[in-house]
Amino acid sequence: MITVILKKQLMGAGGTFCLETSVDLEEGGITAIAGPSGSGKTTLLRMIAGLSMPDEGRLQVNGDTWFWREPGEEPRLNRTPQQRRVGFVFQGYALFPHMTVLQNLLYASKDRKMADRLMEMTGLLQLRDVLPDNLSGGQKQRVALARSLMQQPKLLLLDEPLSALDEAMKSMLQDELLAIQRELGVTILIVTHDSSEMYKLCDRVVLLESGRVVADKSPRELFVERKTTQKFAFKGEILELRSIDAIHIAVIAIGNNLVEVVIDTAEKESLAPGDKVVIGTKAFNPTVRKFESNEFDFSKL
């Protein structure tokens, strides 16, 4: 069991806020840390890794205390990152440009047998003598992942590791990550904004907003089994409303896509260009309704 009870004051775009978590994580699973930008996701990973000091709280892994600090006191215990045996994959890979693939791995640990095993698992054996500048983005990500596993960490922390990759490469590396996790049994915490990635990889999603845990559920509970009769729901913005004879049409932007939806007279009278809306379906007919201020905006993930 991994117990994360930590607090830290942070500065955000809207001023100071408190990052506060109190969660228990099972060993051997994959947990997503999700939420809007600036909600404290990366800081949470850095506190777990020992790279950032919490203001107070406790961090325990399998009964072993890594951090303990009472309010207003100096830390009673604060293990160094090296003592915590945590693997961390940063967004920017952080590879040594003057070292080959193999040398990057051996810098983390001199275990050549483990290096060969990980290169084989990640498809890097043929690239062992190549420098990072000659690798693709997906290959660099594989090297960063393999290097983070060289010391056989208790925890693997991934900070949006696949965000810069195209969809095909992202899907392939997701499959590889699942295979590695199942073979090595390492516990993984992954920061991601991608709901499909959470659903594919994770057993659990801890959702942060302004430093607070607002949901702690399985991906199915969070994204599929919501209290709604809709089979799908997408958030968008109305760009235009127009009428052709008795038919009313709303032009709605959903991400980078534009859709036209036929709406009824009551919907047209309640809507205006610029409104944030949710497009769903009920009894196979599309519906458009205003986005309520008390709803969590999944488009911010």
Rank of each mutant, 00 (worst) to 15 (best):
L102S: 03
P81I: 06
M114Y: 12
L106H: 11
L105E: 01
Q103E: 15
R112V: 08
T80L: 07
Q91T: 07
A94E: 07
T80G: 07
V89G: 15
R84H: 09
Q91W: 10
R79F: 09
K113C: 11
Q83C: 05
Y107L: 13
T100G: 07
A108R: 12
R112C: 05
T80Y: 03
G92R: 07
V86I: 12
G92F: 08
F88I: 04
Q83T: 05
P97S: 11
G92C: 03
R79M: 15
K110G: 15
A94N: 11
Q91H: 08
P81M: 03
K110F: 04
R112G: 03
F90R: 09
A108N: 12
Q82Y: 09
M114Q: 15
G92P: 01
L102N: 09
F96L: 12
F90I: 07
K113D: 15
Y107F: 15
Y107A: 12
G87D: 11
P97N: 14
V89D: 15
K110E: 14
T100Q: 09
Q91M: 07
L102T: 01
L102A: 08
L102M: 14
M99H: 01
L105Y: 00
M114S: 14
R112M: 05
V101F: 03
L105G: 03
H98G: 04
Q103H: 03
M99T: 01
F88E: 03
Q82G: 04
L95Y: 00
Y93F: 10
Q91E: 07
L105W: 00
G92V: 04
L102D: 13
R84P: 10
V101W: 03
G87P: 06
D111H: 06
P81D: 03
P81Q: 00
P97M: 11
N104L: 13
P81C: 10
G87V: 07
L105S: 01
T80N: 07
R85F: 06
Q82A: 09
D111K: 00
V86R: 09
V89S: 15
Q82F: 07
L105C: 13
L95S: 00
T100L: 08
T100Y: 02
Q83G: 06
M99V: 07
F90W: 02
N104Y: 05
A94F: 00
D111I: 03
L105M: 11
T100D: 08
F96V: 06
L105I: 00
F90M: 09
N104R: 01
R85M: 10
L102V: 00
A108T: 11
Q103L: 01
A94V: 11
L106D: 13
Q83Y: 04
F88T: 04
F88Q: 03
Y107P: 05
S109W: 05
K110S: 08
P97G: 08
V89L: 13
F90L: 09
R79D: 14
Y93N: 10
V86Y: 13
